[in-house]
Simulated assay, not measured.
Amino acid sequence: MDVDQWPRVGVLLREWRRRRRLSQLDLALLADTSTRHLSCVETGRSRPSRTMVLRLADALEVPLRERNTLLLAADYAPAYRESDLDDAGMAQIRAALDMMLTAHEPYPAVVVDRWWNVVTGNGAMSVLMAGIPPEVLVPRPNVFRLTLHPEGL
């Protein structure tokens, strides 16, 4: 998605504020800003600084990936790097996950991504998935498809 297609930052901030069930006053107090400035940011009458976007995101407890979305919507560069689990810098995390999966045996266990796609699993899970037709596993095994599909688990 091009930066021009991203929703504006004010709309996204208002969405997050409503998800967190906060009034503008509540958020302004948490982010140490004025309700007037917050209102202007949400309506698009004021462009927040990079620091203000991050401060509001912190007050709203927005996940890091979504903070990048907010920054892009405000025409700033992303602040948080996203790494694939197979990257060299993630070797220790991958080793810890493998250790937990192995320790969970003989019971099936999987690691899933934010879309519930199966990233990896232990040996017991591979035995459990052995009888599932290939079309259920394509493009990637998904927990919902695996459990709810008539030919799945």
Rank of each mutant, 00 (worst) to 15 (best):
L38H: 00
R145P: 02
R21N: 05
S49C: 12
S39E: 02
D75H: 15
A79R: 10
T35M: 06
M99G: 07
R17Y: 08
L27H: 08
T120P: 04
M129S: 07
R114K: 14
M100S: 02
A96Q: 12
D32A: 04
S39G: 09
M1W: 03
H104P: 01
L64E: 13
E82R: 04
P108V: 10
D75Q: 15
C40A: 13
E15C: 01
Q24N: 04
R81N: 10
A73K: 06
V53S: 06
L71M: 11
P133E: 05
A59L: 07
V118N: 09
V3A: 11
E82H: 03
L60G: 13
D113A: 09
L64W: 05
D4G: 02
W115T: 10
T33M: 08
A57G: 15
R18K: 14
P139L: 06
V62N: 14
R81C: 11
V118S: 09
T33H: 00
V3N: 10
E15K: 05
V127S: 06
L153Y: 02
R18S: 12
L72H: 14
D113G: 08
R55N: 15
A96L: 09
W115I: 01
L64G: 03
T51Q: 13
V11N: 03
S34M: 05
D86N: 12
R21S: 06
R65F: 04
L54D: 05
Y76R: 14
P48F: 13
E135I: 07
L12V: 04
A124G: 08
P106N: 02
M52G: 09
V11I: 08
N68Q: 00
P78F: 04
A124I: 06
D98R: 07
M99F: 10
L101H: 00
L101N: 06
W116P: 02
T43N: 11
A109N: 06
R47M: 11
A74V: 14
P7I: 03
L137C: 08
V118P: 10
L146C: 05
V3T: 13
A31D: 05
R19L: 12
R81M: 13
P108H: 09
P141V: 07
